[in-house]
Amino acid sequence: MINNKNAPKGLGALLNKNDTIIAILLTLIIAFLWFETTKFEKVPDLFSNNIPPEMFPQILLIIILGMVLIIPFEHLFLKKSGKDIDSSRKKPVEISTIGTMVILSTIIASSQILGAALTIIAVSISLPIYWGERRVKVLISYIIGFPLFVIVLFNIILGVHFEPGLLELIKN
């Protein structure tokens, strides 16, 4: 029999490390939300029909908390049915994914200054290039063609209001 010295023993073997962190995080969020429910405006029983506005969210929070506390031990039951809860999180989040999140958040944050058309162009340029698209002809036709298609379809044909943003400054 192989003796794995690194294998966790005692309580460590019962708890899944990742799930314990998740359970702690969720418990903190639940505690915060519970605290929020205590700050809801008080309503006389007559108006609330004895069902105060905090009652339903509090019931939900208690049930969710009960389930969250099982999460760190759930891997033991899942193992029995042949499921590996860690399979999708064995590898750390890819740099390309974090980069994508940062790029998209930055673009959305600056979209009110940029305006709709420039935001669409910014997405069309930044993501394909960041993801490694290097075919110049493909990139140029995409960067010109796709935003144009979107603007014609949504702004001109469907009448979706596009904020002009920076373009208005240039126009003036």
Binding site: V123, S124, L127, P128, W131, E133, F146, P147, V150
Partner: peptide, 10 residues
């Protein structure tokens, strides 16, 4: 995918 998903995001 490098062209499809930016379109989906837009």
């Amino acid at each position: 995918k490098k062209l499809l998903w930016p379109a989906v995001f837009i």
